[in-house]
Simulated assay, not measured.
Amino acid sequence: MQASELFDISGEIVLVTGGGTGIGFAMARTLALNGAKLALAGNDPDSLQAGVDALAELGAEAISIPMDVRRDDTICDAFDRIESTLGPVGVLINNAGIAHRDKATRLTRETLRNVMSVNVEGAFMVAQEAARRMMRDDRGGSIINISSVLSEMPQRQVSAYGASKAAVSQMTRCLALEWAKHGIRVNEIRPGWFETSLTAPFLKGPGAKVMAGQNPTGRLGNMHDLDGVVLLLASKASAYMTGSSITVDGGHSIGR
């Protein structure tokens, strides 16, 4: 099979949570450039609209959808709106997330709950809604969870974030096992250090230079470093992959 057919996602309807900025938008842009229809979801209308406008300039069909992953009603409503506008979601990129940096001895219960609510509960409930509708229509699909190298690598002052991403990794495997019989693939991407608004608290001051210096490639990731893996997991090129984790970190997790 030729690559153009193997990686073809033209006309595919993709929902990206947290899709207005950073890694979420970068992946949305890649899929849009390859013919997918995009729904960018989140709770920042300005960034979502800016993302939609940028995709429209590329000739892509895209819409912005309000969604707070901590609220089930907004999740259900978002899927309804996408279906009525673009059609049923065939690919979900579960990217919405928050980070927190502090010493574990200062971590409050409220902060821990908030991180878990967005990064774990939110990802689960969005995946659940996507899967229910894929099963309803008997059409299968692809769910791509965005985790982190910190799901396995311990690092100081990121205990809440690291624990949440470890939970996403296990969730990915559990859902993959349960939903495989329905033709639903569930995989995860574990990015390393990319400069985004999410990682800004970690990379402030000399942080970026230090992290780049610890990487075997000598640099941090740029958004195009994720192009190949998101195309793989969104397309039928990954038809026999589920429960898999793909690390994109320039070797950071093996070079320390």
Rank of each mutant, 00 (worst) to 15 (best):
F79N: 02
F79A: 02
F79H: 00
F79S: 09
F79L: 00
D80S: 04
D80P: 09
R81G: 06
R81P: 11
E83R: 05
E83P: 12
E83V: 08
T85L: 04
L86F: 07
L86V: 02
L86G: 02
L86I: 02
G87V: 08
G87I: 06
P88T: 09
G90Y: 00
G90L: 08
L92Q: 03
L92D: 00
L92H: 01
L92M: 03
I93N: 04
N94T: 04
N94L: 04
N94Q: 05
N95T: 11
N95M: 00
G97D: 11
G97M: 02
I98L: 04
A99R: 12
A99I: 13
H100F: 08
H100L: 10
H100D: 09
H100C: 05
R101A: 15
R101G: 14
D102F: 09
K103I: 12
K103C: 07
A104F: 06
A104R: 02
A104L: 01
T105E: 10
R106H: 12
R106Q: 11
R106K: 12
R106F: 14
R106P: 14
L107N: 07
L107P: 14
T108C: 01
T108M: 00
R109L: 13
E110T: 15
E110S: 15
E110H: 15
E110Q: 15
T111H: 12
T111F: 12
T111M: 13
T111S: 13
R113C: 07
R113A: 08
R113D: 11
N114L: 13
N114F: 15
V115K: 09
V115I: 15
V115D: 13
M116H: 11
M116P: 13
S117W: 14
V118Q: 05
V118E: 02
V118N: 03
V118G: 03
N119R: 05
N119G: 01
N119P: 09
V120N: 04
E121V: 11
E121K: 03
A123N: 08
A123E: 09
A123I: 10
A123K: 04
M125L: 12
V126E: 06
V126C: 06
V126H: 01
V126M: 06
A127F: 14
A127Q: 10
E129W: 10
E129T: 00
A130W: 14
R132S: 06
R132G: 05
R132L: 11
R132W: 14
R133H: 09
R133E: 07
M134E: 06
M134L: 03
M134A: 00
M134H: 01
M134F: 06
M135Q: 11
R136N: 15
D137A: 13
D137R: 11
D137L: 13
D137V: 15
D138L: 05
D138S: 13
R139F: 08
G140Q: 04
G141Y: 07
I144M: 03
I144Q: 01
